[in-house]
Each structure stands twice: as structure tokens, then as C-alpha cells.
Design a binder for these strands. Sequence first.
DNA 1: CGATTTGTCTACCGACCGGTAGAGAGGCAT
DNA 2: ATGCCTCTCTACCGGTCGGTAGACAAATCG
Lengths: 203, 203
Amino acid sequence: MPRVGGEQRRTTIVAEAIHQFGRDGYKGASLESIATAVGVRKQTLLYYFPNKEALLEACLQAAGERLGSELSAALEGKETYWDRAEAVIHGVFGLAAEWPEFPMFVREAARLGPTAFDRFADVLDPLRKRAIEFLQAGMDAGEIRDQDPAMLLFTLYTAVVGSLTEASVLNAVVGSNKGRASLRRREREVLLFVRAALRPASR
Amino acid sequence: MPRVGGEQRRTTIVAEAIHQFGRDGYKGASLESIATAVGVRKQTLLYYFPNKEALLEACLQAAGERLGSELSAALEGKETYWDRAEAVIHGVFGLAAEWPEFPMFVREAARLGPTAFDRFADVLDPLRKRAIEFLQAGMDAGEIRDQDPAMLLFTLYTAVVGSLTEASVLNAVVGSNKGRASLRRREREVLLFVRAALRPASR
DNA sequence: CGATTTGTCTACCGACCGGTAGAGAGGCAT
DNA sequence: ATGCCTCTCTACCGGTCGGTAGACAAATCG
């Protein structure tokens, strides 16, 4: 009976839960299989989290914080409009490379409805606000094509997350999407796409 | 005991199953609840489809055929590059307007893995091939920014489906996403975005 | 009209899932 | 050493799910 103890157990359980919630969906992932993967009995898991929903909320919180710190670090020192946009996209793709289940988990969180998703989005709200201000400023300066900045941010989100999560579609449309090479290719494609979409009408 | 009989029962069951698979996911939707919604017992449903997976396959087939015929009709008579691209996007948004669970079901199908998704994609393969040829021709003619046509098609897919399915994200980023007005707004945004992304570098 | 096919039902089963109750083992402070 | 707190476990429960067996009625056909 290995006694790993409090906080560490908690975080490994959350990490595994994010993995399985992302892979199998909230309903599809069972407490039993999450516990087994961690090397512990289901009841041990229920000692740390009173029920499945509480575990989900901990996962949402943790995922939000992780993405937030990742993006904050990526934005460090980036000044121009394009540098910052590229840093965000590159940061998300980097996170996806080392943690493939993360994008799938975020999408599952969105699927579960606004109540669940807000738990994730609230952590990122400062970044969201900054992003919208930044896009608006870029438009005012004529560096970015004029449009609704919030809708633009949403469209950018769907393009990035979509290209990270729709592996089956990629397979059907393009073929061969395994491994890091495909990920890099998709990142490049999204970067080109976004650059083209941000570019003002006449430059 | 109303005896609706063969084919009609089948199609109403498939329609309801697409609805619930899209809303609750494949695992989350139970045969019981699908049957009840149709107004029939679970065992009647199992009379038409030997098991849950067979029901899913019928749904994938039906969804593919429906989308295929929708898009074929939308493309009728459209000649220019932009007209055709716009017709496809407008067609998909139109289908989403009258059948809100359809995009969610497609995304769920993609989540279930390539095996399941291919059942849906195979029906659309002729359209996929035509789309890639069309994009390539547009690039050769200098009407569309030069890039990998297959990857471009994938990115367009993610932008359209994402903006139709990520309602929770839209809510968190923009606020107010209920009703047809929001759908029209998203269609307009996707159209602008895609137009900007397709536009050649110098015009 | 009787037989067969088609469609719907009741009854039930084994597996699994989320969650409860509570025992017991190691670490820590007194 | 004793007692307490933290952590992990075994045992079990009620509910749900996918699926089987088979009765039975309506439609169809000879």
C-alpha cells in the first residue's frame, strides 16, 4: 500500500482524469478506469473528490490555469500584433504537442455546456479581455482588418482548436495525420490562414 | 399499439438517434431514451437495428447522404470560385438552422474515431474530390491564395463546424449566442473570414 | 379462413457505474 | 506508548444500460 500522500495524488488523479475525459468523454470515462490508471482503487479517488462532478471541476480549473500560465509565458516580450498572435497559436500547439489530450478535454468541456465551460474560461478571462483590447487596438492602428474583435477571437479559437481536435476529419480529407510532423504542418497552415485573415484589405 | 410500419419507423428512429447522439454523445444517449422519444419500446428499436453500433452506422450513413444532397443542391448553377465557396458555407449553415443537432452529431462522429467517421465521409468523398480540384484550379487561375488545397479544405471545415458547435465558447467569449440572429452573425463572420483567407496576396 | 410474416410488447439478465459504510494501516504529536 | 489524523482498502447497494427470449397482435397472402 504505497502512501504517496495528499497533493501529489490529487494532481496525478486530475492529470489522468483530464486524459480520460478528453479521450472518452465525461460519460465515457469511469471513475474505476481513472483510478486503475493511477494505480489506486476507486474509493481512494472518491476520498480526494466527493463525486465525479467535483473531479471534473478540478480538472477544468487545472486545465484553465495550465493554459493561462502557458500563454502568459508565451506572450512575454512579444510586442507587435503579429508576434503576439503567433505566440498564442504557437503556445497552444506546443501545449498540444506535449499533452495531446488537452485540446480534446477542452472541447469536451465546451460540449458539456456553459456551466462547466465557465469554470475553465473564468481562469482565462483576463487573457480574453487583453486579447480583445489588443485586436481592437490593432484594428484602430490599421494593422488588422476591421471587424468585430470578439467574433474574430471566437473564429480564431475554432480554427485552432478544430485543427487540433478533428483528427478523424483530417484523416478523411488529407490522409496521414500521425505524429509531430502532422502537428507542425497544421500549425503552419493555421498560422498562414490566420495571417491572411487578419491582414487588412489593402497593404 | 400503433403500427407505423417498416421504413418510416426506421427513419424516425434514425432522426431521433442523430438528435440524441449529437446532444448527449454516443455513450451518453441510451437506447431507452431514444426509443421513448420516438414513442416506442426499446425492444422495438432493437428490432430495426440489431445493436447500438448498427444504429450509429445507419445515422452516419443518413447524415452523410443528407449533407451530400444539400450541398449538391446548393452548388447547382454556381460558377465562380467565390460563389461556390459561399454556397457551401451557406448550405451548411442553412442545414444547421433547420436541424441544430446535425453539426453536433458530425463532431461526435469525428470524435469516435476514423472508423466511424469514414462511414460518414465516404458518402461525401465525391464532393471532397471536387472541392479539392476546384480549390486547386482557383489557385492556378490566381483567384485563390496559393497553398495546399487539402489542408485548406480541412481548415475551412474546422472553421465552419467549430463556429456551429462551440456554443459554450461563443457564450464565454462573445456572450449572447441564442437563436437565429446569432447563427446569421456567425455565418457572416465565417464568410468574411474565409473570403479574407482565400484572397490572393496581391489584388 | 388459416398460415406466415411483420411489428410491438413484457419480462428478464449480466455487466457496469457512481456512490456509501466502514475497517484498518502508517505517520505524527503528545 | 497512546491516540489521532491521513490515506487506502474491502464489501456492498441501487440504478442504468445494452442485449436476449419469447408472447402476442396486426397485416398479408394462399
